[in-house]
Design a protein around this nucleic acid. Sequence first.
DNA 1: GATGAATGAGGGTTCATTCAT
DNA 2: TATGAATGAACCCTCATTCAT
Lengths: 205, 205, 205, 205
Amino acid sequence: MNVRADLAQRREELHAVIRAAAIAEFAEHGLRGASTQGIADRAGISKTKLHYYITSKEDLYQEVLDHIIGLWDDLFHETPDSDDPEGFLRDYIARKLLFSLEYPDVSRVFTSEVMRGAPMLRAHWDASRTATGRAADRIAGWVAAGLIRPVDPWLLQFNIWSLTQAYALHATEVRFMLGLDDDAPLDLDHITQEVTQLVLRGLRP
Amino acid sequence: MNVRADLAQRREELHAVIRAAAIAEFAEHGLRGASTQGIADRAGISKTKLHYYITSKEDLYQEVLDHIIGLWDDLFHETPDSDDPEGFLRDYIARKLLFSLEYPDVSRVFTSEVMRGAPMLRAHWDASRTATGRAADRIAGWVAAGLIRPVDPWLLQFNIWSLTQAYALHATEVRFMLGLDDDAPLDLDHITQEVTQLVLRGLRP
Amino acid sequence: MNVRADLAQRREELHAVIRAAAIAEFAEHGLRGASTQGIADRAGISKTKLHYYITSKEDLYQEVLDHIIGLWDDLFHETPDSDDPEGFLRDYIARKLLFSLEYPDVSRVFTSEVMRGAPMLRAHWDASRTATGRAADRIAGWVAAGLIRPVDPWLLQFNIWSLTQAYALHATEVRFMLGLDDDAPLDLDHITQEVTQLVLRGLRP
Amino acid sequence: MNVRADLAQRREELHAVIRAAAIAEFAEHGLRGASTQGIADRAGISKTKLHYYITSKEDLYQEVLDHIIGLWDDLFHETPDSDDPEGFLRDYIARKLLFSLEYPDVSRVFTSEVMRGAPMLRAHWDASRTATGRAADRIAGWVAAGLIRPVDPWLLQFNIWSLTQAYALHATEVRFMLGLDDDAPLDLDHITQEVTQLVLRGLRP
DNA sequence: GATGAATGAGGGTTCATTCAT
DNA sequence: TATGAATGAACCCTCATTCAT
């Protein structure tokens, strides 16, 4: 009875493994530099088997991109509309950093795509712009209410993105500078504290 | 007499053209994704001719990396030792942003290399760490002198790097969100103002 | 009791479907260009299922070839020995053309095999040559009896074959030249009339 | 001075060799069944070298098709407008057969393309139809003048095409039936004689 | 009997690089 | 110095076929 279910689940699991492998490979080498052999190796399967489960490298890449967008949407869809900037920003920054340090390759794939002009991201960006616009309105509301000093609501968001993603993109550099091993974990709490303080104090009226 | 000089100069010029082409190609596709054909096309020469002037793709990439490090060294080597945090930071941020918006591909190549684990950057990083450590000491001095609030001097530097480079890495995204054309210039002064304010106010004692 | 019979019949039916699909695929692309996926699609079954019923692509091809030979044998085995050239030829040409227009793919597969040197047809050709020789004798008899003008009995047969099969092989071209749709039927009667006249008059003593 | 000319000539020669190899391979296996390895082998060069000279297998195929059309155009462009059916047809049939026996693979490639629906021939066929229409008019003129018996001018042309090309398409079969070796030459004069007689007598008023 | 999964060989093509002139 | 020709390795992907259930 659940033979079918088992099969479906297995397929799903393998697909997840492949996706993870693809994210790692794309994060390191970008779309063009990534090889299906490399993805297969990371997934622990043969190249032929990989191609049995995917349509093409580009399709897999697009799927990864969609998956990333989905992850980020999930992560911030439930954000409560708040008139408490401090609480909201603390939460937002903490989440972003947590995710960045947990899944740095996700940010890397995204940035890699943006750096080449984001040809496969445009479809998603219309929705992103709308969401970012709504957030900008909220920030403008805070400014109007005197809760934070006057800032450009769009640039503030870009700045927070950059502060939180940088520890994913440049993790290797950060580790090196701090004298850590290449696989040592970064101190999430400390980073969160420092970034949060910079932003919150930087916005004081 | 100056035939030799002319030749040398011409060679130098072509080399600069090739380097610029390489930076653009590497910025878009990374080391592995970049093609010598793509570099040749951007340089306006044949692939054969390109290979006459370079040793290999990897060598050219290493040279580009060295060049980038040199550029950044030049940019900040003359920074005066200062006990005026605000003045220093204003200048530092402005320079970083100016360079980022002027030569975004440089930051992209650098980040791309870091994202793949920076295997060809380690040689330079010992010196970078030393310089960053000296800067950290200066920042610590500011803290000790009560000129700025207590911060982690290393993370502060990472944060400033991220804020200033983000507009290079994610220029495409920023333009899209702001409704600008893909080749429209970003508003350097406005960005500088916003980033500077965030940092300076964020550091107030 | 007739469960077995049903199964056998079902198997036979499916086999006929597969054969028809194979003929269509081989007619379009030849042995090497044909894909088992294409055959499976035409048969409306999965590739795996197809391979469950056949031994290999080559074997299926050989079987198709045997089937074709069998069809033609059936078609002309009962031809009565006749001393009436006109009657005989009218009947022969009409049958050939009828079959060609009805099952053009059969002629195409055959010609395709001949064009590649007929490696899998040689086994049959000994018998064919014998039959063709007997027919040549009959034709020679007509010549000797003054019923038709002197002709090479072998070439006459080749010529008739070519005239009748051409409307199968080149149906697409004929349709295009006549301004017909790609799937419009050709005018069998008219073609039969024209070909028959050309041959009969061409043989008048 | 003629270094360039030599290079160009060499290139031209190699291209001719490649085209001949391609015609042979396509004649035997069709577009889909042909392999670039097979073409390279026939041309006596490596597969890599082949791909240095061609754009793609499909492009090479299209070029071969264009070449074939060009050959046939050349062959019959200078045909004089004549009110002497016999002279004209003798010449036409003789030329067609000469070409067919000399370059049978050309006819095979053409027929192979037609058999798969002629997707890459349609562009040429508009011109072909026009030419065939003009020839049909001429034939109709002969009929009107009482020089030949009433026939369908289009079908007459198809029939002549089939009679002349058949010895190219089915050369293997013909040789086998006649007891000739696979590489023995066919008796051009005899075939020409037989075909010509069949047609001329078949058209007598 | 039937089906999804798997695979080794080979498909066409591109690549960075070297050769030859 | 400069260029067309050449090449071996690698690329992404498809193929006919077999396995496992």
